[in-house]
Design a protein around this nucleic acid. Sequence first.
DNA 1: TAAATTAGTGAATGTTGTTGACTATAGCGT
DNA 2: ACGCTATAGTCAACAACATTCACTAATTTA
Lengths: 234, 234
Amino acid sequence: MEELAEAPTRPHRKQKRLGRGTLTKELIVEAALRILDEGNVNALTFARLGKELGASPTAMYRHFSSRDEIETAVADELIRISLDGYEPLESWMDSLRDLAYRAWHTFSDHPAAAMHTFYRVTLGPHEVRAVDAILEAVHRAGWQGREAVFQYQMYSNLVLALSGRNAAMLAAAAAAGADSGNFWVQEYRPARPQDFPYVSAHHDELRIKDGFEVFSGQVEAMLAAMKAALPAAS
Amino acid sequence: MEELAEAPTRPHRKQKRLGRGTLTKELIVEAALRILDEGNVNALTFARLGKELGASPTAMYRHFSSRDEIETAVADELIRISLDGYEPLESWMDSLRDLAYRAWHTFSDHPAAAMHTFYRVTLGPHEVRAVDAILEAVHRAGWQGREAVFQYQMYSNLVLALSGRNAAMLAAAAAAGADSGNFWVQEYRPARPQDFPYVSAHHDELRIKDGFEVFSGQVEAMLAAMKAALPAAS
DNA sequence: TAAATTAGTGAATGTTGTTGACTATAGCGT
DNA sequence: ACGCTATAGTCAACAACATTCACTAATTTA
């Protein structure tokens, strides 16, 4: 029996009405990310935001015009976190690897928020920073113009897709309430094993042990392919 | 009562109550896929399913215990469609390429359903078929045991992630009501262009023209990397 | 200090997923 | 043919949801 907002032991916790400048876009986005981090993908509701901020649910509409707009802002915030403290490394390959790992780990740390991020175009300030950082490394490698943009697309598409799917699987597992120890175990036990000889033969090995290992290998393959496709001058 | 034969001009006349064996898992899944295809990702509701099948919304609960279970069944159906008519080709690389393109095109044709598919483990009959088909090709290439499973993971992870993100972008664009001609245009116009020189310089080229071209290139790179990593005996 | 903005509120609306009690129907045994 | 029974389909109810609108009071400003 939880009394709503009644904290008698803590006197001035409860206020009749919030002051005028209390809520800001930034505060709401931070609260939204907190909510997504502790709940699942659908945990981000206006009611929950209101509780988190001690405000009326509808107060959010003074700063965002819809739930979708909040999600987009959270996506840009996730990019900000991912980029925090980034500086180009000496080698362009190291720079791109660093950026890739940053995306992976940020998405892994915030899987629910990542599900709103990986396919979105936020057009926000931090997304622009990310695009610029990648293009900078691609230019340093030796590409220009159209070619540079193509390489940028290959790279960012791969990183966002792989990191995004990993986050989606993490979020789904969390929503299903699985304990984090065994959630990526796939138990393939076909009804007629003789019809699926390969699945049956590998039953015990069909478990993804470490998603990052696969990701890392794919990033290396991509970087190697980029290096091999580099234009003449080196 | 022979009254059932009335009103032949109007095919499905409104009936008070549906007959007993009218609804099946298969019919519901097909209806669900139809609904997802013409609406967006959130279009799949019990009310909409009821309307589509001329039944009560709650009738679905006699065949599925939750919305999530229906989505999982739709995911497996999507895999079935993707695999329809597949036969292993002579070369293992051709087989894997074929399977990859099938996934891409199926996801592109059903973007909303794909968003429920790309990160899920359905454990359904068709998913098992898909896993078996991939493992078959990997074995034919020359891998066995643990190594074979690792190659399977690299491959399927890449294909599902890339196809899934593409579908997610298509679905988001459709939900936003964009016409399919220009939805992947990213208009980066930073507030202070001098702070983002590379984005500004490539403003006109920062548009993804053909997602499949990028995908195809990445699949080829992966197949080449696999071939290069092949164990000794050939 | 009075007026004007406008951020925050609360009530209301129409959907949503899900539950539980009800009811008619198909298929069974006789 | 007849009733019995299991259960597929239905209906009403509920809590949670996004969103709208009119209202109210806190801050800014004149």
